[in-house]
Nucleic acid binder design. Structure first.
Length: 629
RNA sequence: GUCCUCAUAGCUCAACGGAUAGAGCACAGGUUUCCUAAACCUGCGAUGAAGGUUCGAUUCCUUCUGGGGACGCCA
């Protein structure tokens, strides 16, 4: 059984119709008009095309007008061609899919829309296909043979893993999973920030402080990542009044780059302490990397960059520093500072050079905040000047930042929010809610029937509480992830301690709950088959059927636009429709005597398809879907 | 100062240049002898201002107002 690919079939039908009408077709686009489900009516069709209007308006002044007429006339002409396929296709010309097979009807609406209504058979066919395909429904092979490298997370050593790094980590993870699902060869990398003048600051601070060590004494070993961040913040504040401090920091970073053993030893300790915390968070988030090519990894790979820049004649000495002037940009890119130490930009260039040679990816995607937009503009431009990569290959997926009411959270000003605290709190709240729900269930008077079915309350209590820790983690972490992912990547998010923990409404727990609800019904149904004959669909059933087949399209759009929020929207809407259906209709036959009853079978099929879709979709977002909650 | 970006309901967010601008939260009311009430139903409510392009503008262009960000020795 194959995916029917409604979009492709309809697009080709339109193209063929245009060809027969002797009209040059540009690209044909389809959209899903809004479904007015309240009345259970289709409104404007499952797909609609504005091609007639597009052609007429683009043909203006080119003498095409007489040929195509008004948008409405052209739309009618296209409709006739599609609704009355030529004899060739009726005689079995297999090169051409007869759109009538999937379409119930085609309508034209002013001022020139063509609306396509899928047939019930086609929708049921798609349902069968989804059930057959199971967890793979929505996947494709379109990315086969193509490789994409995604750089994400990259927290900075010696700074706490703040909420600012959540977006990069999570959006990056979703982009990675989406592309894998579409058949891409994905490399997940992490350009960990473990190099630069900031470490000069810390080394200077440690050297000059009470922490000053001889052969790494225990005092130093006890320092935590919080201590490092505090030192960093204090250092920056003091450096405002005392520029000599920055000089000292640069000096220490220079020594670090030159391999000074004292500097290197301190740096090593800072790094290993930080990584312990990062690892814990990555595990909790379920994030995995193929590589962690940290900035320090590129220390010995910068010399070729400098060499290339000099040979190409694009590097210039200026005020003691080595710079590259970029056409169209006022500010040059700094390859070497005036003390000849390297910069973040140089390391980024070395990374592009390395990635391009090592992996030969079609695209390199940076999941980094919008505040680094200018930085990447410079780096991408120079990377192209150096011949490392074409600009089109380099993508900066710039996410908006978490903001306080007062403005940007600045690490240097000590305004970050520690992610681990947020995750812990989310899990606690999820657990508290689960326990209160369970408490309510236990208090509820049970009917005799329920009593005999559940062998004992004690056993169900036990099994429930065993599961609840895992569920609480899935729900708590899921809530935080979904809160983040459901926003369009490029918008800023106002940090709201309460809203992040939402366990109802448009949230991961809502989707997870819907999934668990489906599984529960399916479990009660036991073994059944999906054979059914349906003569008429209830509006709530139809609403689900007319939405769920969007899933493969939504996945492609989410991946193509690097916008996981599109997938969030879809999953939420699907859940809403399922819950509406669930409240309005009974799925299992009340008597449980005739489970093979056609209607039950159909509703169970719907339930299974929705459950699978939710599970797959949540999985692509990096969110777990517990079997029960 | 220059450049980038954003402005949608009381709040937080959606909406390939399309049709009656969708949700969630909050608020008011209703739903459980019946498959999970973390649910469902009803109500309330919005495109910052002024022009322009278009058959059609929340979306594109200009100006204004108001947020946010970036602009060579942090990363």
């Amino acid at each position: 059984m194959e995916n029917q690919n409604f979009q492709k079939t309809i697009k080709e039908a339109i193209k063929n119709a245009l060809k027969e009408l002797g009209i040059e077709a540009g690209s044909v686009e389809l959209e899903h008009p809004t479904l007015r489900q309240a009345q259970g009516k289709l409104g404007h069709g499952d797909y609609s095309s504005n091609i007639a209007m597009a052609i007429v308006s683009s043909g203006k002044g080119k003498g095409k007008r007489e040929k195509s007429g008004t948008p409405l006339e052209l739309a009618e002409a296209i409709k006739l061609k599609i609704a009355c396929p030529p004899i060739a296709s009726l005689l079995g010309d297999s090169r051409r899919e007869n759109p009538l097979k999937i379409l119930d009807r085609v309508e034209v609406a002013p001022p020139g829309f063509i609306n396509f209504f899928l047939s019930k058979e086609a929708l049921l066919q798609e349902l069968y296909f989804a059930l057959d395909t199971g967890e793979k429904y929505g996947s494709s092979k379109e990315g086969e043979g193509k490789r994409i490298l995604v750089d994400h997370s990259h927290p900075n050593i010696a700074k706490r893993f703040g909420i600012g790094h959540l977006r990069s980590t999570i959006i990056g993870q979703a982009i990675i999973k989406l592309h894998k699902f579409l058949g891409w060869d994905v490399i997940a990398d992490n350009f960990l920030g473990d190099w630069g003048t900031q470490f000069g600051m810390l080394i200077a601070r440690i050297q000059n402080s009470k922490f000053k060590i001889q052969n790494c004494n225990s005092k130093f070993k006890n320092l935590t990542i919080d201590d490092f961040e505090r030192m960093y913040v204090e250092f920056n504040q003091e450096a405002k009044d005392n520029p000599a401090l920055m000089e000292e920091a640069r000096m220490w970073f220079k020594k670090l780059e030159e391999g000074d053993s004292e500097a290197w030893e301190i740096w090593q300790h800072i790094k290993s302490i930080s990584l312990v915390e990062f690892k814990r968070i990555w595990d909790l988030l379920g994030v995995e990397f193929d590589y962690i090519h940290a900035e320090s990894f590129f220390e010995d790979k910068m010399a070729p960059v400098l060499k290339d820049a000099k040979e190409k004649g694009i590097a210039k000495e200026d005020q003691g520093a080595l710079i590259v002037r970029i056409p169209g940009l006022e500010t040059p890119l700094l390859l070497l500072k005036s003390d000849r130490a390297t910069t973040y930009e140089t390391r980024d260039l070395a990374a592009i050079r390395f990635w391009a040679r090592e992996f030969k990816p079609e695209k390199i995607v940076y999941e980094v905040g919008v505040d680094q937009e200018f930085h990447f503009k410079q780096v991408f431009a120079v990377a192209e000047m150096l011949g490392y990569a074409k600009k089109e290959q380099l993508v900066h997926v710039k996410h908006g930042l978490y903001r306080l009411e007062t403005g940007k959270m600045r690490t240097r000003a000590g305004q970050t929010v520690k992610l681990e605290l947020i995750l812990d709190e989310a899990i606690k709240r999820a657990k508290r809610l689960a326990e209160s729900k369970f408490g309510y269930e236990a208090m509820k008077p049970r009917s005799d029937k329920a009593m005999t079915q559940d062998s004992s309350i004690a056993s169900s209590l036990n099994s429930h509480s065993v599961a609840s820790d895992e569920v609480a983690v899935a729900v708590g972490i899921g809530a935080i992830k979904y809160f983040d992912l459901s926003h369009h990547p490029s918008t800023d998010i106002v940090f709201d301690w309460e809203k992040m923990f939402a366990l109802e409404g448009n949230s991961a727990p809502y989707l997870q709950y819907t999934h668990a609800r489906c599984r529960s019904v399916l479990q009660r149904a036991g073994i059944f088959n999906f054979q059914f004959q349906i003569s008429n669909l209830e509006p709530e059933e139809e609403a689900i059927l007319r939405l769920f087949y969007h899933f493969p399209e939504v996945i492609q759009e989410s991946a193509y636009n690097f916008s996981p929020n599109l997938l969030c929207n879809f999953l939420f809407e699907l859940s809403q429709r399922y819950n509406t259906f669930y409240a309005a209709h009974r799925i299992l036959d009340v008597s449980r005597s005739s489970i093979a009853n056609s209607q039950s079978a159909f509703r169970l099929a719907l339930t299974e398809a929705v459950a699978n879709t939710l599970k797959t979709g949540l999985g692509l977002l990096g969110i777990q879907a517990p079997e029960r909650m």
